[in-house]
Design a protein around this nucleic acid. Structure first.
Lengths: 233, 233
DNA sequence: GCCTCTTGAATAAGTCGTATGTAATGGGCT
DNA sequence: AGCCCATTACATACGACTTATTCAAGAGGC
């Protein structure tokens, strides 16, 4: 048997999760553990563990005598990073990017305001460094470098807010930014206005200007939403 | 064998999840599947399924030859409703209520603004009905009835926003409201000012007044945060 | 003599096959 | 029509085997 590099469980989970998140299995569709075991050439034990995980994500529901039924989208745990990744890999990626960006536009301004109050000296320094990195990579097709600094920047702000619920959205934001960069405008340099806003946001946080930080972050969010509207209406 | 009412799996998962979320097992603590099987008097199969689910929630990490290690809090999937429930049942419930309330204060105003634009006639009607229900139950120790209407109210707003990420926070908000009511002020009637704000919010949504809805929701959130500060400093 | 690298044994999770229990469904019997 | 029973597919359990990882002992080099 060809041993998977990271375990049979992970492999089957990813394959099934992708299928369901992509909508290949419409809600109500019934899967059979035996079938799945055959299809992936693994034992039922492995399949059962996978089903249990998918069940904990509310992607499926397992009932005796009836099988494993796919649940409607509204019931999924859409905040699970794994689920987000599966959905972003699927066909309704634009819709997904939009709702995540709206979420960002709600959360990040408040987080930035809190960060201005609570950020440590180290966090301020790291923030400034990221902003400078964004400036340095904002021209000349250095999109990957720019993306790395952008992700780090927003992660620091969320962490510095001191609220763990905000901090845990760092992964979500990272997925959104990566998705945006890799999906649409690989050929264009980032918007210079956005870069400036990040630099000014770093300053505001460093100076403890909470309202300024919140306002600047709102502007960044508006820009991100506008970008989506322009590129994927 | 004592047959569990809802399955062995659920029972063991709940017990272990509670223990970990409550902090009884400090991060880095190693659990052995054999031990757990013995302790809960179930087979290793059931334990493995439970471990897999806890692993998908990033509460633990399972490595060969070393065992199941509890991960640090910062890595948990704190948006998983199950995890939230476990943590709210534990000892750091106040801290948890606070971070969730801050999250609400960021998300709900934006959601209310969107709801004012997108709410259907049915949703507006249901919202008004809930607001009236809150008024009717705001005096005379009808806290359970008030809570039910309060939860329904906020759920409708989140759903009406049309954003699925917001909509899925309905359960979180429900947990917070329930936790607040059951934890602290069972003896006091709700703040009359809050009741009024909900009535006015229902009006604003019905009239499509987005900025008004956002502002009113912010006031509600401020009140909720203030309440936490007063009662659990 | 001390440090490093290799090697091998011990260990605990990973995987599998099978057996049995259990609940829900659907058809057949009265 | 209504009740009963056979079927079905998941739920649970057990035991054997596999594999990766760790730890330590020993060989070799400095």
């Amino acid at each position: 048997m060809t041993t998977q590099s990271q375990g049979l469980h992970t492999h089957v989970l990813d394959a099934l999760g992708l299928e369901i998140a992509a909508g290949d299995c419409p809600p109500g569709r019934v899967l059979r553990t035996d079938e799945l075991a055959q299809r992936f050439d693994v034992s039922r034990t492995v399949v059962r563990e996978v089903i249990r995980v998918l069940e904990s994500m509310h992607l499926v529901e397992s009932r005796r005598r009836v099988g494993v039924t796919v649940r409607p989208t509204e019931e999924w745990n859409v905040y699970d990073p794994q689920v987000i990744r599966w959905r972003l890999a699927g066909s309704d990626r634009p819709r997904q990017l939009r709702s995540l960006t709206v979420l960002r536009s709600a959360v990040e301004p408040v987080a930035a305001g809190l960060a201005a109050r609570h950020a440590t000296a180290e966090q301020c320094a790291a923030l400034t460094e990221c902003a400078l990195g964004m400036v340095a990579t904002s021209r000349g097709q250095q999109l990957e470098g720019y993306l790395r600094h952008d992700i780090a920047f927003h992660r620091i702000v969320l962490n510095a807010s001191g609220n763990e619920m905000f901090a845990r959205l760092g992964d979500v934001v990272a997925e959104v930014l990566a998705g945006r960069t890799h999906h649409q405008v690989m050929f264009e340099d980032p918007d210079p206005a956005a870069v400036t806003l990040h630099v000014r946001l770093a300053e505001a946080v460093r100076e403890g200007d909470a309202v300024g930080a919140e306002r600047l972050t709102k502007e960044i969010a508006v820009g991100a939403l506008h970008e989506l509207d322009v590129l994927a209406p």
